[in-house]
């Protein structure tokens, strides 16, 4: 009988960066499937564009920096960034949008700060904010969920729309059928309606909502929630950040809704529309840019939840996930500094 002799620490783990990142990417699949069911093939085309751009950009920067290209590419972090950005932007956005965004995420936000592990901001969300403030029109026109859309965005018309083939008869036909289906997101619709003096109940009778939640978006968020639960089970992420985000968002939203249900959006709507679940499980939990101790993570998550609510309700943009995550990223080192766990043998608060 052979004994394995090894020095401490006697912990066996297979969780290397590439495994973690691969699992994160795999856990995004349920959400991806549901999203493409409701919003057409556009998301998958964006995904392909984003992933190929991300790998090319990462390889180019690694070549410039004289680093091992293969080792960096196989840690799968570029893959996760690309997927997160691809699911965050509108499915039929023009191709250059996702290319600019991915290049910015990989080259400027990640590699210029020193590569994986050194970036201050979440690359996907920084790129999303770049695109949102630079191209507001393209970034806020989502297509209607396919279940209520007049025209289905099939794979051919999605391709025509994304690659902007405008100058042929065929393209014009497809372009028209797509244009008929773009509309604002549910959160955007609610915001506009509230500013026009409608109550939330009146606004929610529109076809883009079904019952208490948004058509399509509810199930997309549900699928991300399931993906997140699998990640928790696999111990890819810890629960603190996700639960803190959802809890603080729920508390804030309930508070507003109890005070004035006509002018504030319901907590259910906040939790299950826009990018809430995606942010809570996949974006804010990025180990590089989040706080590190359990208590710090709770504060970090709670901060994101409150910010999402405040920016969604009082801010100028319909969804707030990206801004909230970036602002919390800035505070993460600060939180870590003040919430240091007690070292064994030291008194608290020294």
């Amino acid at each position: 009988m052979a004994f394995k002799i090894a020095s401490s620490p006697h912990v066996s783990t297979s969780l290397h960066t590439n495994t973690v990142m691969k699992r994160v990417a795999l856990c995004l699949i349920p959400g991806l499937v549901v999203q493409s069911y409701y919003f057409g093939f556009g998301t998958l085309i964006q995904l392909l564009l984003a992933v190929s751009t991300a790998y090319l950009a990462e390889a180019a920067v690694m070549k410039l920096r004289n680093k091992n290209i293969k080792a960096t590419l196989s840690d799968n972090s570029a893959l996760v960034t690309a997927v997160l950005l691809a699911v965050a932007i509108p499915p039929l956005a023009p191709w250059w949008l996702i290319v600019i965004g991915t290049l910015f995420a990989i080259v400027i936000v990640k590699q210029l700060y020193g590569g994986l592990g050194n970036n201050v901001f979440n690359p996907a969300m920084a790129a999303y904010v770049l695109l949102l403030i630079s191209f507001p029109v393209q970034m806020t026109s989502w297509i209607a969920p396919q279940t209520i859309a007049l025209n289905h965005a099939d794979i051919l018309s999605s391709l025509f729309s994304i690659f902007e083939f405008r100058h042929s008869f065929l393209a014009e036909h497809f372009q028209l059928s797509i244009d008929g289906t773009t509309m604002a997101t549910p959160l955007d619709t609610l915001k506009t309606d509230l500013s026009m003096g409608l109550t939330t109940t009146e606004s929610m009778t529109k076809p883009i909502f079904s019952g208490m939640a948004a058509e399509g978006w509810f199930w997309v968020n549900m699928a991300y929630l399931i993906g997140g639960a699998i990640m928790l089970k696999l111990k890819v992420i810890r629960w603190h950040i996700s639960i803190a985000i959802l809890a603080s968002l729920f508390v804030c939203a309930s508070f507003g809704y109890l005070i004035s249900p006509d002018t504030f959006v319901s907590p259910l709507m906040h939790l299950f529309s826009g990018g809430t679940m995606l942010a809570a499980f996949f974006i804010a939990t990025d180990p590089v840019t989040a706080a590190t101790s359990p208590r710090g993570r709770l504060i970090f998550g709670a901060m994101i939840g409150v910010l999402i609510y405040v920016i969604r309700t009082f801010g100028g943009y319909p969804d707030a996930v990206a801004f909230a995550v970036l602002l919390a990223n800035m505070c993460a080192p600060f939180i870590d500094y003040y919430v240091r766990p007690r070292s064994y043998g030291h008194r608290t608060g020294n």
Partner: peptide, 15 residues
């Protein structure tokens, strides 16, 4: 067709 707003805003100048 669509101006790259970031380049014209102060954050773009910083970068």
């Amino acid at each position: 067709d669509t101006p790259f707003l970031l380049a014209m805003l102060p954050p773009g100048a910083f970068i």
